[in-house]
């Protein structure tokens, strides 16, 4: 059986990139949501745009310059978070809007003749993943999964109760920096297919969906990874047939899944409350 989308090399690359995103984004996002830092990926996407712009202007691979910018941004964000409690969100806002403003301004300085499709970077596209990108994404995804799986128990402890982790003698600052760096790496893995403005959605929405029906951390991670992978891969496929931007399509599919599960969970809770005691009014 021939599947039309697999005939094209660019689609095979986009689908593989989607698979990597689906595996990595929720496995990082679960720790961000647990610490109520769900939007940090969004901010790092903004910062990565400056890196993309630098890459375009200097004719360097944008994926690598985005990686450098996002990692620096992640470390700065984490240090700000540790240092100042009160002005932290303002400092983050400066960094995030500085990231996107810097990106737009630097891109405008690109040498004449350079065609820059900023939309593809911001909202994702299925045609832009190069073979070189895919190799970089594969290596980065392995790094992300090695950290989130290998050090998962430590990241859980730090995310669940930072003060307790500190009192247990864990290297909390180093673990936090590591999580921040891994988040920025995930941002870069997602930048081609999902886009820098929508990356955070795949770190957060599959987690939000999974936790509606799970009661353990581990099952939340497993289910969110399945949901994220399904949304990313089917979104890329749908984007091809419907001729829509892939990032937006993936995110809408993820949100649709969230709504279906949320309604289902609400119905289940309602039935549970009303069935065992038929005379109860609730």
């Amino acid at each position: 059986m021939e599947i039309e989308v697999l005939q094209y090399a660019f689609m095979r690359r986009a689908l593989l990139a989607a698979l990597l995103i689906g595996l990595t984004a929720p496995s990082v996002g679960v720790y961000l949501v647990q610490r109520r830092l769900a939007l940090i990926g969004d901010g790092l996407g903004h910062v990565a745009l400056t890196g993309v712009a630098v890459g375009l202007v200097t004719s360097t691979t944008p994926v690598l310059t985005a990686l450098a910018a996002a990692v620096v941004g992640a470390v700065v964000v984490e240090l700000i978070r540790v240092k100042g409690r009160t002005s932290g969100d303002v400092a983050l806002a400066v960094l995030f809007y500085g990231g996107i403003a810097g990106g737009v301004v630097i891109v405008s300085q690109a040498p004449p003749g350079t065609t820059v499709n900023l939309d593809a970077y911001l909202f994702g596209a299925i045609t832009t993943t190069t073979a070189g990108d895919l190799r970089v994404f594969a290596v980065l995804s392995l790094v992300v999964l090695a950290v989130t799986l290998g050090l998962g128990r430590y990241l859980f402890a730090v995310s669940n109760d930072e003060e307790y982790a500190l009192a247990s003698g864990l290297p909390v600052l180093r673990l936090n920096l590591l999580l921040a760096v891994v988040t920025s790496v995930t941002v870069v893995v997602s930048m081609r297919v999902v886009g820098l403005l929508l990356i955070s959605a795949l770190m957060v929405i599959p987690i939000a969906t999974a936790q509606l029906v799970t009661r353990s951390f581990r099952s939340t991670v497993v289910l969110a990874t399945l949901l994220g992978t399904a949304a990313a891969v089917s979104g890329v496929g749908a984007s091809y047939y419907a001729d829509t931007p892939s990032g937006g399509t993936i995110v809408l599919i993820a949100i649709a899944a969230f709504l279906v599960v949320a309604v289902g969970a609400a119905l289940r809770d309602h039935l549970r409350r009303s069935t065992p005691t038929p005379d109860a009014d609730a």
């Binding site: 679960v30 949501v33 647990q34 610490r35 109520r36 769900a38 290998g150 050090l151 128990r153 430590y154 859980f156 402890a157 995310s159 669940n160 109760d161 003060e163 307790y164 982790a165 009192a167 247990s168 003698g169 864990l170 987690i207 936790q211 799970t214 009661r215 353990s216 951390f217 581990r218 939340t220």
Partner: peptide, 29 residues
């Protein structure tokens, strides 16, 4: 600790929270 921080943003079981108390003796990876 005095603070009530055991319920994070993600569901977790009693066993998972208790297991996070022995990390200094459990090796990574």
């Amino acid at each position: 600790p005095q603070r009530q921080t055991v319920v994070g943003g993600i569901p977790s079981t009693v066993r998972e929270v208790v297991a996070s108390g022995q990390l200094t003796s459990v090796r990574p990876f």
